[in-house]
Amino acid sequence: MFLNHDTAFADITPVTETAAPQISATLSAHTLLETERGWASVDALQAGDCVATLDGGFAQITAITTPRSNTPLVHVPGGVLSTCSDIALPGDAHIALHTPARWIDAPVVSVPVKALSGWRGVRPTLFNGPDLAQLHFADEEMIYAQSGLLIHAAPATGETFFPKLSYGDARAMLALSAGKMGQPDTVAA
């Protein structure tokens, strides 16, 4: 009846919740994305809308925020990377590129868009992106923009399904595909 239970739970440590990795892609507000209703600009989207992805399905946008970024934009001309028109992306955005044959086992790799500077008319701009939007997703995605460009929505840190190349590795892949191995990187990005 008078048992000593006052220290029975002394060794239990509380479990803390680990935050899920933030999966997002930062885009210009005027970028066109394919939705279930057709093509729409990012500034016309809201949380709950779904956008087309590489796997043929649609991924739901869980939130849209305005990032604080001072990264200059990179201009991608229309017709390059399967875009239907010009697009401006933050320099730290990642996009999908097909790899040269037998270079890597993945069908596409994720490269920073600033690594494409000087390739097929892609160039950095002197402007920051005041009208940027950050789209958040529950899972890692490759989303379609401007009719054919694939933008990588990935966790900020940690492992990703699609191999993420560094600036140097992306430049090496471009040089390899152009047959210019051993050439110095002459593009200031």
Rank of each mutant, 00 (worst) to 15 (best):
Thr16Gln: 10
His98Val: 07
Thr53Arg: 11
Gly121Glu: 06
Met173Ser: 11
His98Thr: 12
Leu33Val: 06
Thr18Ala: 13
Asp105Trp: 00
Ala10His: 13
Thr99Lys: 07
Gly38Ile: 12
Ser24Glu: 03
Ala101Val: 13
Ala153Phe: 07
Gly182His: 06
Pro163Arg: 10
Val15Ala: 07
Thr160Glu: 05
Glu140Thr: 05
Val122Arg: 09
Glu17Gly: 12
Asp169Gln: 15
Ala40Trp: 04
Gln22Ser: 14
Arg171Gln: 05
Gly129Leu: 01
Ala189Ser: 14
Arg120Thr: 10
Arg123Ala: 14
Asp6His: 14
Ala133Lys: 10
Gly78Trp: 11
Ala52Met: 03
Ser166Thr: 15
Leu97Asp: 04
Gly48Ser: 08
Met142Asn: 08
Thr83Trp: 04
Ala88Pro: 00
Asn70Lys: 06
Gly182Lys: 06
Pro72Gly: 09
Ala189Pro: 02
Ser24Gly: 07
Val109Phe: 05
Asp49Leu: 02
Glu34Phe: 01
His30Pro: 00
Ala47Tyr: 00
Arg68Lys: 12
Asp185Asn: 14
Gly182Trp: 03
Thr125Val: 04
His94Arg: 15
Pro67Gly: 10
Ala29Arg: 03
Ala153Val: 06
Leu45Gly: 08
Ala115His: 03
Pro163Trp: 07
Ala19Asn: 02
Asp86Pro: 08
Pro21Ser: 08
Pro184Asn: 09
Ala47Cys: 03
Ala19Lys: 13
Pro184Trp: 03
Glu17Met: 11
Tyr167Pro: 00
Pro67Ala: 07
Leu149Ile: 10
Ala101Pro: 06
Val108Trp: 01
Ala8Leu: 15
Gly78Asp: 08
Val76Phe: 02
Trp39Ile: 04
Thr16Asn: 05
Pro77Ser: 07
Ile104Glu: 12
Gly182Met: 06
Phe2Cys: 05
Ile64Phe: 04
Ala101Asn: 09
Asp55His: 13
Thr186Asp: 10
Gly91Phe: 01
Phe127Pro: 00
Ile87Tyr: 08
Pro90Val: 06
Leu3Lys: 11
Val187Met: 13
Thr31Gln: 01
Val108Met: 11
Asp6Phe: 12
Ile64Lys: 05
Ala93Ile: 01
Val76Leu: 13
